[in-house]
């Protein structure tokens, strides 16, 4: 009889393309990797509400305001789906929030950059969501069932996010000189950080090999980054935006673009907490979390006073 609780059997299931569910046997490191990756993903969605949130009250038309609000609401929803997926592994949302606020858990560094002009809203949708989508589409096939199901739902909902961002950029590039300058300025500031979103090169990525073996990650950082570069550069050129990299070349043999080396010093600096907004983002989260405490306490107190007996005896 085979041992269903062995790592060999587990790997066999993965290799057969099976999904792993919450109660199934899994190696401790698989579990740990999932918790780290999914919670980081969830925190990114939630912290990601802030830079765009910075422009809600200044959105320049009723249409723009509705779109932006609906989009940020989606990010919150996606954070929620992902928190739920982590909860299937027995980690509560309270614990996850505590890890975020104490700095123990990370979130995508891209959200430590500021949203400075309205075109940043375009750039975030087009580049940041565009990069995220490349990753998320790949993650729909991830081996952990609850994560995979969450990603399917998220990808379906996110499909408008990138388009609305590109629409803003296209509109501004077709607009006044001021608008064009804003769009190019946003492009210059968001291009490199969005390439960094895919993480270090495969050769320097500490978690990559296990994650690929376990099919948590289905494609490597560099593969995904290349996909994003290849589809984004022509989109920029189409609307007249200049990609801020003089060394961009299309390799006719491979069909892929080559780019300059990414500034990994900056990447490491922002990851280690020294991005322009690291402190601001966490402070914001803590402030409103704390301000909500009395509300949550009230709801629980109310529930305790009015608990229906029949529900408790189910």
């Amino acid at each position: 009889m085979h041992n269903e609780h062995s790592d060999t059997h587990f790997q066999l299931r993965i290799d057969n393309g099976e999904h792993i569910e919450a109660k199934d046997y899994m190696p401790e490191n698989y579990r740990k990797h999932l918790i780290r990756q999914m919670s980081q993903h969830a925190h990114s969605e939630v912290i990601g509400m802030q830079p765009e949130g910075n422009w809600i009250t200044r959105a320049p038309s009723l249409r723009a305001k509705q779109i932006l609000l609906a989009k940020i609401q989606d990010e919150g929803g996606h954070g929620l789906y992902l928190y739920s997926a982590v909860e299937t592994l027995g980690v509560s949302r309270s614990e996850l929030i505590e890890q975020l606020q104490s700095g123990k858990a990370k979130y995508s560094s891209i959200f430590n950059y500021p949203a400075l002009n309205w075109a940043d809203i375009g750039a975030i949708g087009w580049l940041v969501d565009g990069a995220a989508i490349v990753n998320q589409v790949s993650l729909q096939r991830t081996s952990y069932g609850p994560y995979s199901r969450g990603m399917v739902r998220i990808c379906k909902e996110e499909s408008f996010h990138q388009r609305q961002g590109y629409e803003i950029m296209a509109k501004m590039m077709a607009g006044t000189k001021d608008q064009q300058a804003m769009a190019q300025d946003a492009m210059n500031r968001w291009w490199w950080p969005s390439l960094m979103m895919f993480g270090p090169h495969d050769t320097n990525s500490p978690h990559s090999s296990d994650a690929v073996k376990w099919k948590i990650k289905r494609e490597t950082n560099d593969e995904l980054r290349q996909k994003f570069i290849d589809k984004t550069i022509p989109q920029a050129e189409l609307i007249g935006l200049v990609v801020p990299d003089k060394n961009i070349k299309l390799d006719d043999n491979t069909g892929h673009y080559t780019i300059s080396e990414i500034n990994w010093d900056e990447f490491n600096r922002v990851i280690s907490g020294h991005g322009p907004c690291n402190k601001q983002r966490i402070d914001h989260h803590i402030k409103y979390h704390n301000e909500g405490e009395w509300v949550r306490e009230a709801a629980i107190a109310f529930k305790k006073k009015h608990t229906k007996k029949e529900l408790e005896t189910v």
Binding site: S84, E87, S92, R93, S94, E95, I97, E98, H289, E293, R296, A299, I300
Partner: peptide, 10 residues
């Protein structure tokens, strides 16, 4: 362990 509660899961 956090004393904060995020309500019950449904």
């Amino acid at each position: 362990m956090s004393t904060d509660t995020q309500f019950d899961l449904w």
